[in-house]
Amino acid sequence: MTSIGTGYDLSNSVFSPDGRNFQVEYAVKAVENGGTAIGIRCKDGIVLALEKLVTSKLLKSGANKRIATVDRNMGIVSSGLLPDGRHFVSRARDEASSWRNLYKAPIPTSSLADRMGSYVQAYTLYSSVRPFGVTAIIGGWDSEAELPVDGQVGAGPGVGSGGKKDGAKHGGPYLYMIEPSGLYWGYYGAATGKGRQIAKSELEKLNLSEGELTLEEGVKEAARIIYIAHDDNKDKEFELEMTWISSTTGPTKGRHEDVPKELREEAERLAKKALEGDDEDEEEEKMQE
């Protein structure tokens, strides 16, 4: 970063002569120090996982949940400054609730991502604020069923309701990642935080775009990737936090929930086993050399 110290990096909303907004780039640095967070879009749902670094022995284990629920069917996991992540989630909840107020139906994941992208972008525009020090992954399941309008107390006539197309499909799992610049993309597999490079290359191996990975496999892969991405040398201990969202007919009934304890522990057991396996392979290779 050659332009550091030239004065163009001291205030938000200021371009440097070569067209960069340094404060946003510095915000990205804050993200790069956070624990790894990933999201996987599976055939029949979404998995969100987080490497929660244990900074003190005195922390209550299993408490301090950091993957948040928005409305009922969406989850947000973020990496970077914790309080900024909570601000982000709080805004997302407000957006979801005001959408419901207006449209009497849950907000689609794509619309939430769009609105949050705009919100985050607004924090790059003014010198009176600083950008968000977080990259957030939003996962959601837009219901494929025909939902009643909020407050509906009975069904309409059984015939003659207009505007419906036979066999038209809608809903399904969606995944988005929003960066401090406000930029966002839809993903099959998203990763951010310290271990994002390793996590990304692992996600790429899963061929997620083919849409074959099931939710349960996704849970196991997510656990494995977090374990691989964890840096044993720099950070000693971590807790794995995982949530998932399935269809209305799946295990979470369209809701965003914690992955059940038994399944998470099973996934962690497999992840540890896979890691040990890797080490053995490496040792074997060395032996052969």
Binding site: M1, I4, D9, L10, S11, N12, F22, Q23, Y26, A27, V28, K29, A30, V31, E32, N33, S127, S128, V129, R130, P131, G133
Partner: peptide, 11 residues
């Protein structure tokens, strides 16, 4: 001030 990140991403 608290609206400026350092190059390391600290406030």
């Amino acid at each position: 001030d608290s609206v400026t990140f350092s190059p390391q991403g600290r406030i």
